[in-house]
Design a protein around this nucleic acid. Structure first.
Lengths: 201, 201
DNA sequence: GTCTATACACTGATAGAC
DNA sequence: GTCTATCAGTGTATAGAC
């Protein structure tokens, strides 16, 4: 059977045409704008197609389904976030990993509100249940390392602590979305302080 | 123009027929089950109608729109939650209000997973933006009172603290939804301890 | 390889008969 | 109070033009 050519690296990823690359990028950009502005329901295939200047069916030529379009847009926004957070965490010392995680994540989401809404909408409306552990595990490891570096007794609370911090970050960012004047930097500082009291008692 | 009769109390609420009361209650119950089982999208008007033994149009006779059906079911589940939390908070002393809030809310949501998913789905899919302040303000007041009772210097952080706690509760409950073995009571204890360190330094 | 045209089943919603 | 009939809009599938 006929198959799409694969890249020279042979890593299994299909080699994309220039026009296809451009179209996909355009569709992702348009989708982020639409979802950020009108939410998941408001970003219909017809609306996406119209903004891109093509038809619904053409959109479904580049992506197998609407969920795939949204997923691609979601991953695009998400990769920018994790990239910045990873950089900040690596630049920080072992005992300051969690603080760098919190501050860089809150800061990034404040700087990019469209990406933020895109991520939230995709997370809450995508029925494909992503593993929740993927969300808290990286932070849990940072917390374990930081607690160890500070000489605290290693407890088994890292998971719950990470879940709490993650939920708190979501709430802070969400609040800023509704009240642009909300001081997220101060909120992040308070969260870091709260965690600091637990890590070095 | 013809208007529906209002109750003798004259509080503006329409007086409902017995059969209408029964139908609404049945539709609310059916909707909670469906939303909890299949999410917002899975609870179509046709599915609700079928489970209730009537047609789509009949459902829309009792409620003006699908959003109204879901909203009614949402409020039904929510009122049970706030009732239990309010009782627990009132039974606790002033300095233990936040702890009672956290433990009773987490406990209630663990005991009633169907209500929990109903509340989550309704919150995330209802575009009618409810005021976020309604979520954190009651807890913020409890925190202020408790901090005062413990002799802590009154800071202006009550809002952010309440937002953080609320987000943490959401994350804990959500985690329990995906992993039924997750120990939410221990998580609530940890959250209370974290807050306690801030309130009485 | 890229796209348009068309048709399909399903959604929430309305109008009017009984 | 509940029905049938109908509507515009949704995501999706297919055929075929270029």
């Amino acid at each position: 059977m006929a198959r799409r050519r694969e890249s020279a690296a042979g890593d299994g990823r299909p080699e994309l045409t220039l026009t296809e690359r451009a179209r996909r990028a355009q569709l992702i950009e348009v989708t982020i704008e639409l979802v950020a502005a009108k939410g998941y329901a408001g970003a219909s295939l017809a609306a996406i197609a119209e903004r891109a200047g093509i038809t619904k069916a053409a959109v479904l030529y580049h992506f197998p389904t609407k969920a795939a379009v949204v997923r691609a847009a979601h991953e695009h926004a998400l990769s920018a976030l994790v990239g910045e957070v990873a950089t900040a965490v690596e630049a920080a010392g072992p005992e300051d990993g969690p603080a760098a995680y919190i501050r860089s994540m809150v800061g990034h989401l404040r700087k990019h509100p469209r990406h933020t809404r895109m991520i939230i909408e995709a997370m809450t409306h995508d029925e494909g249940d992503h593993d929740p552990a993927a969300r808290w595990r990286p932070l849990a490891e940072l917390i374990t390392v930081a607690g160890h570096a500070r000489g605290a007794s290693a407890d088994g609370d890292a998971r719950t602590t990470a879940i709490i911090i993650g939920g708190a970050i979501d709430a802070i960012v969400s609040e800023q979305l509704h009240d642009p004047d909300y001081d997220t930097a101060a909120a992040a500082d308070l969260l870091v302080e709260l965690l600091g009291r637990k890590l070095s008692p």
